[in-house]
Amino acid sequence: MINQVYQLVSARQIEITYKDSSISADKVVVRPTHLSICAADQRYYTGRRGEEAMKKKLPMALIHEAVGEVAYDPENILPIGTKVVMVPNNPIEEDEYVAENYLRSSKFRSSGYDGFMQDYAFLNRDRLIVLPQDINMRVAAFTELVTIAVHSISRLERKAIKRRGTFGVWGDGNLGFITCLILKSLYPDCIVTIFGKTNYKLNQFSFVDEAILIDEIPEDYEIDHAFECAGGKGSQYAINQIIDHIKPEGAICILGVSEYPVEINTRMILEKGLTLIGSSRSGSEDFQRTVDLYKEHPIIIDYLTTLIGQVYTITSVKEAIEAFETDLSSSWGKTIMEWKI
């Protein structure tokens, strides 16, 4: 069948291309219905990834945060219309010790490999996780972002010392919000504190135990473990502040992406015996755990609705471009595209 794919061909320019995609016995066909714009998509869309990366990876369809409905299952296991979240990571090998999202050979959608801006997606069965059929699909659209937090917490659970009294999260954006929410759901008896720069954003974190501005942290304030969700230039400041306030042998989970190297206080890392845990992307296991959490803690979905920002109905390339342009000026929440093109 001829599949329409909406590819970024240069900065701020999206064009339709036609690909002959064969229906096979090992691929489930999914019609994307709701897409969520990520900061990584915007770096490509605006050309901020740099000339070399743009030349190497374009043309390419954007979006790796998406949900849809099954259009065809060759094995008739998933009924037509089943709501699913699509896993953007596509491993082509297995490693006994390395997770699929860290294998250098894995392909990741909207990073050198077509994302979900297309009429139909053809996926291996293990790249689909069935959603509750009554779920809010606008929230489900950014499930991939939720899995980033879930993956990082899972890594901390395996690698950190067992003290779980207090958690600190640096970064009052979407990822910080989600990380706090998942921590509070998994560890309701633990103290979760959000550290941020902006009062109006901190006011959104109604479920945490404490919200503190980063320039008002008491000198003697301590936490057991921390998550850095600031990213960019702010990651250096956040990591060093964490090092100052974390207890000895605590773990620091680094989630924020910085385009440039940052300087951190290695002397105090050594003196305190700290563990730094890097986390990037996620795998199918993280998606399954996330959907299980949706079912076990329905309040997670309720809180995540506060992250829904602008919602656009997309019926043309022009409307998709308008959604990306408007998202650039958004300071809070996720821009959702209802994919009706």
Results as ranks from 00 to 15, higher is better:
residue 235 S to Q: 11
residue 235 S to L: 09
residue 235 S to T: 13
residue 237 Y to A: 13
residue 237 Y to G: 07
residue 238 A to T: 04
residue 240 N to M: 10
residue 241 Q to I: 03
residue 241 Q to T: 15
residue 242 I to L: 02
residue 243 I to E: 06
residue 244 D to I: 13
residue 247 K to M: 11
residue 248 P to L: 00
residue 249 E to S: 06
residue 250 G to E: 00
residue 253 C to H: 03
residue 256 G to L: 06
residue 257 V to L: 15
residue 257 V to A: 12
residue 260 Y to L: 05
residue 260 Y to I: 07
residue 263 E to Y: 08
residue 264 I to L: 11
residue 265 N to T: 04
residue 266 T to K: 08
residue 267 R to F: 14
residue 268 M to D: 11
residue 270 L to H: 14
residue 270 L to F: 14
residue 272 K to L: 05
residue 276 L to H: 10
residue 277 I to H: 08
residue 277 I to E: 09
residue 280 S to I: 15
residue 280 S to R: 15
residue 280 S to F: 14
residue 281 R to M: 15
residue 283 G to H: 11
residue 285 E to I: 07
residue 287 F to L: 11
residue 288 Q to L: 12
residue 292 D to R: 08
residue 292 D to E: 10
residue 293 L to Q: 04
residue 294 Y to A: 03
residue 294 Y to N: 02
residue 296 E to C: 00
residue 297 H to C: 12
residue 297 H to G: 01
residue 299 I to R: 14
residue 301 I to S: 10
residue 303 Y to C: 05
residue 304 L to I: 04
residue 308 I to N: 03
residue 308 I to D: 05
residue 308 I to W: 06
residue 310 Q to M: 06
residue 310 Q to P: 06
residue 311 V to I: 10
residue 312 Y to R: 01
residue 312 Y to W: 10
residue 313 T to Y: 05
residue 315 T to M: 00
residue 317 V to T: 13
residue 317 V to H: 06
residue 321 I to S: 07
residue 321 I to R: 07
residue 322 E to P: 04
residue 324 F to Y: 13
residue 325 E to D: 15
residue 326 T to H: 10
residue 327 D to S: 14
residue 329 S to W: 12
residue 330 S to Y: 07
residue 331 S to F: 10
residue 333 G to W: 08
residue 334 K to A: 02
residue 334 K to G: 02
residue 335 T to R: 01
residue 335 T to N: 03
residue 336 I to K: 00
residue 337 M to V: 07
